[in-house]
């Protein structure tokens, strides 16, 4: 304790985690191999803080780790029964607000919403289901857009804007009426320049954006989260890039 003050550090669940100025709590945690549950965060894109799954207690106040800049001597609690209970309630609300029928979804087993629910040991959606009327857009030759499964993480919005430079997706409406929109006069994906090679076609955490003609190539039971927890999978790309932080 108090030995070398070479770099600034915060404490996450009692573990000292160093950071450089400009990093968020999430950045610092990912770099240090400390897992904080998250759905809408992907280090490739600007953080958004809308799923709230990365909620952590910072000096006693709840904050989203993906948007909160790390500051010296922050004491962060993440892996606590209280926060995991809040996170489970958030995931349960995401389930009932959409139409997430896992047995009928091609993304089952590869779905991060489902995997987060497994990680948080969710046994039922608990709340009353909304069963909202939502559209399926199959107009694009290579890609389905199934709004039943959209959780408004805005990863496709960010990927299309920041990486693909296309702005194919956007968010419209407010509150419970918030929904994903497609940037075309017709509102249909087939009338955009969206391509299967776009980053935005690959980042959907659920089965809302699905590539056509890939159905069940990998059988149920052999998929990403069937045997591996989301905490392991989401930390994998970080481990590969770790030496850069030396």
């Amino acid at each position: 304790m108090g030995a070398l003050v070479m770099s600034k550090a915060i404490t996450i669940d009692g573990k000292s985690v160093s950071f450089i100025d400009g990093q968020t709590i999430m950045d610092a945690a990912l770099a240090a191999g400390v897992y904080i549950p998250h759905l809408c965060h992907n280090p490739e894109f600007e953080p958004h803080g809308n799923c709230k799954l990365c909620i952590v207690s910072v000096n006693g106040r709840n904050m989203t780790a993906c948007t909160m800049p790390a500051a010296e001597d922050m004491v962060v609690a993440s892996n606590t029964p209280e926060l995991d209970s809040d996170r489970q309630a958030l995931v349960q609300m995401l389930f009932v607000e959409g139409n997430h029928i896992c047995p009928a979804c091609e993304a089952s087993g590869n779905c991060q919403l489902q995997a987060a629910a497994y990680y948080l040991k969710m046994l039922s959606p608990h709340f009353m289901h909304f069963y909202p009327p939502r559209e399926v857009d199959a107009s694009h030759p290579d890609i389905f857009l199934d709004l039943n499964r959209c959780i408004l993480c805005e990863l496709c919005v960010r990927a299309s804007r920041e990486v693909d430079g296309k702005n194919v997706f956007g968010i419209s409406g407010r509150g419970i009426g918030t929904h994903l929109v497609v940037n075309a006069a017709s509102g249909r994906l087939g009338d955009t320049n969206f391509a299967v090679t776009d980053r935005a076609a690959q980042v959907c955490p659920t089965g809302a954006i699905l590539i056509k003609r890939q159905g069940y190539k990998i059988p149920i039971g052999q998929r990403t989260f069937d045997h591996k927890k989301i905490s392991e999978v989401q930390m994998e790309p970080v481990k590969r890039t770790e030496p850069e932080h030396e």
Binding site: F95, N99, H100, I101, C102, P103, A104, L123, S124, P125, H129, Y131
Partner: peptide, 9 residues
Amino acid sequence: AITGGVPAL
């Protein structure tokens, strides 16, 4: 029983 499942489609 837990979500309505496939019949809820």
